[in-house]
Nucleic acid binder design. Structure first.
Ligand SMILES: [Zn+2]
Ligand SMILES: [Zn+2]
Ligand SMILES: [Zn+2]
Ligand SMILES: [Zn+2]
Lengths: 154, 154
DNA sequence: TAATATATGTTATGTTATAACATTGCAAAT
DNA sequence: ATTTGCAATGTTATAACATAACATATATTA
């Protein structure tokens, strides 16, 4: 059920969409930010900050440092283009930025593939829990780890 | 809605319950493990590993090292006595160990108080999402950050 | 041009967590 | 009673993750 691969078409669409959003919101989609976004979104699996850093170094053949990557990640997260998976200190691209506030995740421990699962009923249920506790949500981390269909059959 | 304080009675009950569970399951509730558990549960708020380490050093007046604390935490988490909050790299005591598999959390960003919110409807909704995606859950991180009633009124 | 703001480069360090190996203490087997 | 095995802890070192602080560059705009 978790898709094995995102197609080139999907990847390009994602990049274009972010490009478009940045243009129309006057956000500087600079070279570094674009590079980091592409590395994340093309990776297909959650990727770690220092892995991104390694790729940047390979691509540019210049010295790069952690703050460069973390700043780009911060920008991408702030604007909803990328999510952080707190349970595994890794980052994933968002395939539907700006369409909702929160994204929830299924993460396969075996093959590392993940899927955003943002159904409204889940969102509603979380809202209700908050309301019931008179709690005002600012952000939600929902990360479901386990095994995808393929991996649980093996 | 988030309770300000756990009473001494509640704390003692928690410690006794863990003691009991360990005894009846032949788990070694050693001095260090007990100390770490007490520090966590008495703290009332999420506590960080190195804060625990500091407390241990204060209590014992002996050199202590990170692995000591992390090993104790691992033991406590494995047995459901303590939870890790991945979104803030902190640890909290569980006030109803062994009564269910997963615990979900409301965490106030302002006053740092937290609450376990393990209602079945939320659990069911997460299960359904997993089933719908043919996904077998091994563990779930659900951490809702925001403001509690008191803090959102200020 | 000068002033301002935004982004990036660079060095250093802070924070969180674990690997690897030595030592201790206790209990079962010989 | 000694040896063996095992679980827990001690200790050193380092890995992995993240940010502070300040310098430099680049682009807008007053
Ligand atoms: Zn998303
Ligand atoms: Zn899988
Ligand atoms: Zn719990
Ligand atoms: Zn609060």
């Amino acid at each position: 059920m978790i898709k094995k691969e995102k197609s080139i078409t999907e990847l390009n669409a994602s990049i274009s969409r972010v490009d478009e959003i940045c243009r129309s919101n006057n956000l500087g989609f600079t070279d570094i930010r674009r590079q980091v976004f592409e590395i994340i979104i093309k990776n297909n699996k959650p990727i770690k900050a220092y892995e991104i850093l390694d790729e940047i170094r390979n691509i540019t053949n210049k010295p790069s440092h952690p703050p460069t990557v973390y700043r780009a990640i911060d920008f991408l997260i702030e604007n909803g283009f990328v999510h952080k998976l707190n349970s595994i200190n890794s980052f994933v691209g968002c395939f539907h930025p700006k369409t909702h506030e929160e994204c929830y995740f299924l993460i396969c421990k075996k093959c590392n593939l993940y899927q955003e699962c943002c159904d409204d009923s889940l969102k509603d249920r979380i809202s209700k829990t908050a309301v019931h506790n008179k709690f005002v949500i600012s952000n939600t981390t929902l990360e479901i780890e386990g095994h995808c269909l393929d991996c649980s059959q093996k």
